[in-house]
Write a protein that binds this DNA or RNA. Structure first.
Lengths: 218, 218
DNA sequence: GCAAATTAATGATTTATTCAAG
DNA sequence: CTTGAATAAATCATTAATTTGC
């Protein structure tokens, strides 16, 4: 019972190209500084060739980057997955650090619009980024907590920077709770379905996480 | 009976691939360890340049370094005050839209570091921006509330992106609210208007978040 | 020094769970 | 008890980063 496929909705998020430049040029450069970029103009060919179905022979050559001289860098024909730039990652982490966990459509749209300045990006990329980042931070934390079976406290105490001064609460908090449904609505055009928006109160938090904290993670 | 409805809802972006291939989208680069923090983040280094001093010592800071950047509103007069760039404003509004109101020191530090990429900025600028923006949104809202009554249904508005999703849920605290499950709207078309209405009740203190949302529309 | 081969991250999908409505 | 909605967990897939061999 779950669902079947259907693809309908989606379309509107699909990227629109930023204005004109996207800049971000960087890419290449294997190690060290990373700045990838792409200049990929065009592209959006979503059509997809399905090269992937080619299989990957066990060890056969894969994509290597031997194309160095040609004028085009690959251009990756069909399209590939989103490749965030430093700016994009920085902003996303900033948002995450601020407490954002599952942005709703409106927010995704807004974020996407902003990040689009630094490189090609679509709403779904933003959505997935939050999903994955959240999940992986959780794993990471879980791993650590296990590993540290004995430390008295020392959670990751990282920054104790803090600042305090009044306030204490600002936005975040809300680390990830296990289950908390946050609001989102996949509304697509008008259907009649009215979504009830209900909410569940949140958290049941397990594990406390002091802070999202991911200073330099990755 | 309701099956069809369902379809819309679920439609993630392209969802399943039918039989064999296909795929959907792809594009840029994904993984790899990046350290954004260290690598590029060095806004400092950049700033350390101090072009400003080169240029107009007496006039004060300017941000001009070669930014390719897009439009910059800054006409900055050369004064000493912070002159935000479009990117900076966009990001700040995005954070505000996400619910951030009074970032703590750590967050300010982080935000400042990120925004430093786009132009000269100091932590206090970030702090003041939030203070001022919050206060001014509140004023604006107060004015509007007098003149306007929210229309409940706004039929026409369907397309407009707008909406407010009530708290979006991100970070903030959610003390209240009866409604709990949230729904996300991915396509931004219809969201729940009702929600917005109700939202008014909830926000006690933070005053609603109608998102400032700049009309960038797309 | 290159570039194939390997590894590590992480984007994108799929599946399972959870909660609420009917 | 069944069904819809939404998220988290698990998994798959791809490519940047590294290592290795010449």
């Amino acid at each position: 019972m779950s669902m079947k496929v259907h693809q309908l909705a989606r379309g509107f998020w699909e990227q629109h190209e930023p204005p004109s430049l996207s800049l971000g040029c960087k890419r290449l450069r294997p190690l060290a500084p990373k700045l990838q970029s792409e200049t990929v103009t065009s592209a959006d060919s979503v059509s997809s060739f399905d090269l992937k179905s080619f299989i990957r022979p066990e060890s056969g050559p894969r994509k290597l980057h031997d194309k160095k001289d040609t004028t085009q860098v690959e251009t990756h024909p069909g399209g590939t997955r989103w490749n965030p730039t430093q700016e994009q990652i920085g902003i996303l982490e900033m948002l995450y650090g601020g407490g954002m966990r599952t942005p709703n459509a409106q927010q995704i749209e807004q974020i996407t619009a902003q990040l689009g300045r630094y490189g090609k990006i679509e709403g779904k990329n933003v959505f997935y980024w939050f999903q994955n980042h959240k999940a992986r931070e959780r794993q990471k934390q879980k791993r650590n907590s296990l590993g540290i079976s004995h430390s008295p406290r020392t959670p990751t105490a990282v920054n104790t920077i803090s600042l305090d001064t009044t306030r204490g609460g600002l936005l975040e908090r809300e680390e990830d709770s296990p289950y908390k449904r946050k609001c989102r609505s996949w509304g697509f055009e008008s259907l009649e379905l009215e979504e009830s928006i209900r909410s569940s109160k949140e958290e049941g938090d397990r594990t406390l996480e002091l802070f999202p904290l991911h200073p330099e993670g990755r």
